[in-house]
Computed example of a mutant assay.
Amino acid sequence: MHTVNIQGPYNFDLVLSRLALDPLHVLDKEERWVKVPIRIYNQPIVVKVQADGTTENPVFRLELDEIDPSFHVLIIKEIRRIFRWDVSMLAIHEHFQKTNLNQIFDQHYGTPIVLDFHPYNSLVQCIIHQQLNLKFAFTLTKRFVTTYGSEKNGVWFYPLPETVAKLTVEDLRALQFTTRKAEYIIDLSKEIEKGNLNIDSLYEKSDEEIMTELLRYRGIGQWTIQNVLLFGLGRNNLFPIADIGIQNAIKKLLQLEQKPTKEEMEAMLPEWHPYLSYASLYLWRSIE
């Protein structure tokens, strides 16, 4: 058991409400906990993150598997990365109080950007979700993970790239994947298995370097990469202008007659910089 105190505000209840959208996540909103599947040196480990504090004074208890104590520092570091506990939500909130987004930052006070549990998971999920409604996208992702992933203590782990690389298009077609999506995910996993794409190296690269590298692969476009940068790697200053949800959120918030143009949206960005990712998240939240 490890106790972690962080600076508030940090609204874990709103974190859980967003995580609950994904049926793969194991959590309890009333008891205020979530079980997180992570891998340390490729060993699957389940960490229960239990909130004990409040939004203003957040305190968390981490319940770890019975594993080598030398792993504990790495596990805590990974949980801090996923839940963005080292980001000052107070500084971000105060920044947006001086902008036209202050209303939604008050409504969703202290909501952090919580990351997908691994960038590979994020890439695969983004490819699956392309051009699907959210409900079926989550259903298809769950089928994929529960068919080819692994389960520990009731928690599901995404399959490793080397597992997916051995699948056939017909394997994924049986789950209702399109032929193209099946090809995209299998081909990407093969590139990772061959060592042509090092997922862990993405942590150290700039947004521009990652964009250049990932655009080489079929099925990965700008929208997918922006989502991976945002929710896979936790980059703070991304704003997907082409996202229809964000356009609708701005239209609703500013009471516009029609969705804003690209030029109108670009004119808003300097005021929200350098926290464009949080502007994106809170705009999405405002219409969820």
Rank of each mutant, 00 (worst) to 15 (best):
Q130V: 09
A242Y: 02
P161N: 07
T212K: 14
S206Q: 02
Y217R: 06
T139N: 08
E191Y: 09
A182S: 15
L62P: 00
I250A: 00
Y41G: 10
V26R: 12
I92K: 00
G234W: 04
M268I: 08
S201K: 10
A267M: 11
F239C: 08
E66F: 03
L115R: 08
L74P: 10
Q97K: 10
Q222V: 14
I244Y: 03
L276T: 01
G53D: 05
Q130A: 02
F96H: 09
E66A: 07
Q258F: 12
T141C: 12
N237M: 10
S70G: 05
I210R: 02
V114I: 12
V26Q: 13
A165E: 12
S286M: 03
P44D: 07
N5H: 14
H72F: 13
S286A: 06
L90G: 06
R32C: 09
Q130N: 06
F60W: 03
K35A: 10
D65Q: 12
S280Y: 14
V26M: 08
D116H: 11
P9M: 11
E170Y: 11
E191H: 15
N5T: 14
T261R: 12
W272D: 00
N236H: 11
S280C: 14
E63T: 07
P112F: 05
E213K: 06
H2Q: 14
T55M: 09
V228M: 07
T163R: 14
M265G: 10
G53R: 07
A279D: 00
Q255G: 02
E208R: 06
I104H: 05
P274L: 04
S122G: 05
I45G: 02
R39F: 07
H118N: 13
E78P: 03
P260D: 04
P260E: 08
T141W: 04
Y120V: 04
V155E: 05
T168Q: 07
H118M: 01
R218C: 00
G149H: 03
A137P: 10
K77H: 12
D22C: 02
L238Q: 12
L115D: 08
G53A: 09
Q7S: 13
G234N: 02
T111C: 13
R216S: 14
Q247P: 05
N57C: 04
A51D: 04
N102A: 15
M268W: 01
L214S: 00
D28N: 15
Q258R: 13
T147D: 02
Y10F: 12
V164P: 11
W156T: 04
V114N: 02
F71P: 06
E204H: 12
K181C: 07
L64T: 03
L238K: 03
L276Q: 06
K259P: 06
N236Q: 13
N196K: 14
Y158E: 02
R173Y: 11
E266I: 08
V34Q: 01
K98M: 11
N248K: 14
D68W: 01
L90P: 00
I75Y: 05
I250K: 00
K98C: 01
E264G: 01
E94I: 03
A51R: 13
P69D: 09
K259S: 08
S277K: 08
P119Y: 02
K181L: 11
F177M: 11
T212V: 12
A267W: 00
D28R: 12
C126D: 12
L256A: 05
D22L: 07
N248Q: 02
